[in-house]
Design a protein around this nucleic acid. Structure first.
Lengths: 309, 309
DNA sequence: TAAAAATACTCCATAGGTATTTTAT
DNA sequence: ATAAAATACCTATGGAGTATTTTTA
């Protein structure tokens, strides 16, 4: 049975250093007999003497000297655990795996990553971009630490942290005449949507189905960028999130219009497993993401206004 | 206060490996609640969670994973202490510093070293050849582990282990006529002795002073070899230990004679500090030295007989 | 509802304290 | 005779057990 204790090893080091039971005990904050007993037990446990005692000197045996080196290493390694813990407690360390859906990633990520790496310089951030359903699986798998997606998810095992609400904007060909300002006006439009699985598709449809009918099916696109290009080619209309506007619109021959309230939109938030012990850290991370989004929105809003919409 | 215990670290490893409190507890030979408590205390001590718990899975946090590597190293290092102890207990390890007086060293050492290195193949043997008084100081200094010299020493702090008794042999010039067989006959001889400090000098004189007078002072030599050469040159007579005969006599034009009992002689033994915890090991070493000397004596005796003395 | 972890409590082993003895210089 | 380590003995902390509750899938 391995019954050596770290206390014994610390006492051993103190005694090895001071060569005197009384002083070593004092330094160790225990009484001399307590130290004597512990050293003796350590020797019994190892089955060999560590010190050569006399009333004048206490000095290490040859074996004791070999042990000193190793024990110092051990104690140093244990102390390192504390340091590591403190570092990990105060700020995230090591790998940090964040998931994000495709209809947010391209627009939010650059800014978020910049903000995060400013705050957590030594954090090794991994990004995974995929559909909400996969992100959720990977969160449950513990493959991801957290995910940025549209709320609500409605899984009780997750903490949902709302980041911001973003509006949907309608993208029309420049050739179209009158602005569309209510869902009803969409019914005779050909609506281009992201392919099945994207939550943004569902969100757009939800808005359109405010009534009971839905717009004529159009084509599916695999990215917002593609959809906008398709709109520019006159194939129909589509929605994009407000945040995508500065990136996706510009090159394409399209025009935008907002709706009158209630504007279509969605809540974007960050989620993580409630059981993850880094939860408190994640709130800080989420706050940083929120600030990044806010900054982005201000930037965009000025451009947006510049577009005169 | 550093209150992590090795037990906790072992439990941690078990839990990290099994991912299940119940099984890890079983493997560790304790109950599940005991394990729960210890893991929790470890986490409290470190101030950060090591595991992410749910009733389905128990898995390491990012921090826990970092800790696993280090803890495994720590536990391995602790186990190594046991191995090191066992190795040191069963056989001498590391440096072994042995002292030996000049009137024994050249004759006994080669054989002793051969015997010792056969028995302790990985022992790093250091030899120190000097006068008894210095050897004793160095034993007290703990510079030496043990010493081979003429007994008795009479220090209570030393264990004296007698190895063998060796006779002194008189060395005469071949030109001298009649054998000398009793101390009295030495009184009119010119006696060549080792310089002050060699115990062998005192031992020779002790024999000569069996009566009250002592032989005429001769010259001092720094080694037995020198003395024998001086005898060959007709400068006087000298004593050498029996063991030195095969080495020192042969090239010189001298003849030998023994005395009738009580033959002059001395007890050669090994000494070490009583307080040295390797004492039991030293008895084994001493026994090996004794066997080496015995072997040597048999070898010499046949040569000696061949000389027809 | 079932499986697993956490909690509550109890007990005993042992670390550590004080007083004393032994040892070695 | 003195300084230091070892021993004896006692106390109290805490490690570990059993029984139970809480949690989550």
């Amino acid at each position: 049975m391995n019954n050596i204790s770290l206390k014994q090893l610390r006492y051993f080091c103190a005694l090895a250093e001071h060569g005197h039971f009384g002083r070593a005990a004092e330094v160790s904050g225990i009484s001399q007999p307590a130290l004597s007993v512990q050293i003796k037990e350590l020797e019994i446990e190892l089955g060999i003497a560590l010190f050569e005692r006399s009333s004048r000197h206490v000095c290490l045996t040859a074996f004791g000297e070999q042990v000193t080196v190793r024990v110092n290493e051990i104690l140093r390694a244990v102390d390192d655990l504390y340091d590591l813990a403190r570092a990990s407690r105060d700020r995230l360390t090591g790998r940090f795996k964040i998931g994000i859906i495709p209809t947010i990633a391209p627009y939010l990520l650059p800014t978020v990553l910049r903000y995060l790496s400013e705050e957590y310089s030594e954090l090794d951030i991994h990004v995974r971009e995929t559909l909400s359903s996969k992100l959720i699986n990977e969160l449950n798998d513990r493959t991801l630490d957290c995910a940025i997606l549209a709320l609500p998810i409605g899984e009780t095992s997750f903490t949902e942290f709302p980041l911001f609400t973003e509006s949907m904007v309608l993208v029309r060909p420049v050739t179209s005449e009158i602005p569309i300002t209510s869902p009803e006006q969409l019914l005779d439009q050909k609506l281009l949507l992201l392919e099945e699985g994207h939550c943004f598709r569902e969100q757009a449809l939800t808005f359109c189905k405010v009534g009971t009918t839905r717009p004529r099916d159009g084509l599916d696109g695999s990215s917002l960028s593609t959809l906008v290009q398709m709109v520019g080619a006159g194939l129909g209309v589509t929605f994009i999130p407000e945040m995508a506007v500065p990136v996706e619109v510009g090159s394409a021959r399209v025009c935008l219009n907002r709706f009158r309230p209630p504007e279509p939109g969605r809540v974007v938030g960050m989620i993580w497993r409630k059981s993850n012990p880094l939860a408190s850290q994640f709130e800080r991370v989420a706050e940083i993401v929120r600030r990044a989004a806010e900054y982005l929105r201000h930037q965009h809003r000025s451009q947006y206004d510049g577009l005169g919409i």
